[in-house]
Design a binder for these strands. Sequence first.
DNA 1: CCTGCTACCTGATGGC
DNA 2: TGCCATCAGGTAGCAG
Length: 274
Amino acid sequence: MPEAPEVEAVTRTLRPLVRGIIIQRVHVRHAVAVHPQSAASLKTNTANAHIAGVQRRGKYLLLMLDRGCLAMHFKFDGRILWFDDPKAALARRTHVDIVFETNKGALGFVDQRHLGRAHWLAKLEDSAGLRGLGVDCYSREFTRERLLEMCRARPLPLKLLLMDQARVAGLGNIYAAESLWRARLSPLRRSDSLTDREGRALHKAVVSVLGRALEWCLNPPPDFRNPAWWFADLDGMLRVYGREGQPCARCRASICRIKQGGRSTYFCANCQTS
DNA sequence: CCTGCTACCTGATGGC
DNA sequence: TGCCATCAGGTAGCAG
């Protein structure tokens, strides 16, 4: 599920909760969550580690340890949970793939669908995924100029460019669609055909959509103690995503859904210009 | 190098 | 009801 705004909200909320604590024991209940690493190596590398900080890169959540780092990627359905009482994390009742028992409580990595991963890295460059990330969508380096440069480097449908983590890191299917709607640009539009004015509009739209999304994700803040909670009700903030057949919030034309790169793209063919 | 396709998983939903 | 197809906020790995 999570794209950069959700992961950023998790990062900020989790930071004060776990900074400075010690991972004492690690229970890998579903080894697939560690694949292709082994449960044993995750345990030996993270047990007794001190959590020095929490960071985000693209859609990755990073727990910086005194030795190396714990990198989590949630893919579609991954989430984290916090248990004040570690016994609750180990109870058979809720599905938890990995339990990190600490001196303060237990951190759980959960993914029913088993696509998400938690890996230990000696250094960040050891992960191909992290190494390959382009300009982070929330960083100062994500400027209008950089975006235009990427757009003009090769002809790519705008939606695919925005979703390519090697170019802009952090945008996913929802916020790429929302940004294009806001910029009034078609997802099919060839990136190298943008005028300066359109490039500026796209950059502004991405920044604005991400800013609002982060606000939305922080109010109310993530509640890691509640297993039923995980960024519910995003649709209250969305204008096009998931709204096939409904009237466009701007021009009332019917929102369409097409396939791009094997994913659904939602847009208004009337007011998003190609 | 780059681009495009499939696999990886599980669960919810809708049509027949 | 049951059964089957399709869909889901993503990326790694592979072929061309």
